[in-house]
Design a protein around this nucleic acid. Structure first.
Lengths: 130, 130
DNA sequence: ATCGGTGCAAATCCTTTGCATTTCC
DNA sequence: GGAAATGCAAAGGATTTGCACCGAT
């Protein structure tokens, strides 16, 4: 069933290039449907994900991405922002695989971790344990 | 500081090839240190992760992997088990990258999603929204 | 009339944290 | 001896769920 609430959430996600959390989505969608509840947002996000319309990226809390095309994410270890990386996945043999020994691949997720330009690097790295 | 608790947790994780949750780790470590608390387990897991001694994989709840070598994970969409995929990442140009436009890559994580042998495929797939 | 979706609020459950105490160098 | 880690229990916070109601077929 495609309700107004679900459509509004999906439209919002398809229309932005950020990767909002459920709470952000709730806030944005509420601008159009002021009476929508968090429960409904969570239920619809879960359903949309199950259908493969959106993907979920776990960075501290769940974030959502309306873009399900082949791309990777770069996650800044400091500011926790999620960046899209499009140019990488085309030619890669690994990522064009359809199956592994374990089973058929339905979809994949690649996350690179590091420091973005702004938070750039000087960041102290903890020493390994002796 | 390297305490007995931290060492026991790390040893446990390095010694298994599963990807236990904090709760499982707590249960296992408690066999050797019956008085250890969940708080300590969580604190140490967080610290070990920050030091790069272990990695965290988010599948429903946090799971932990004592193997930080280059490998991917296959996550069964039904039974939620996490499988290691070692043979893929060696030759791949993408995964040997050290940087992206966004910033230097510190580490990465690849997750393939699908159904494992046991849960194998026949599983009904929900239709996309019209 | 029925069935699924919603809103609301309470419940759940994973994870974090404050604090007094203990451990480790 | 003193900084850092622990155990305990309570707090926090994201997500889920029960239930009465509503809306579409």
């Amino acid at each position: 069933m495609i309700t107004n609430q679900k459509k509004t959430i999906l439209d919002y996600l398809k229309g932005v290039d950020i990767h909002p959390s459920a709470e952000i989505i709730y806030g944005e969608v509420r601008k159009k449907l002021p009476q929508i509840s968090r429960g409904t947002v969570y239920r619809n996000l879960k359903d949309l994900k199950k259908r493969g319309e959106i993907q979920e990226i776990s960075v501290d809390v769940a974030h959502f991405d309306g873009d399900i095309s082949s791309h990777a994410h770069f996650i800044c270890k400091q500011c926790r922002k999620i960046f899209d990386i499009f140019d990488i996945c085309k030619e890669c043999g690994v990522l064009n695989r359809k199956k592994t020994k374990v089973g058929k691949i339905n979809n994949y997720q690649i996350s690179f971790y590091g420091y973005c330009q702004k938070c750039n690097g000087g960041k102290s790295q903890l020493p390994r344990l002796s």
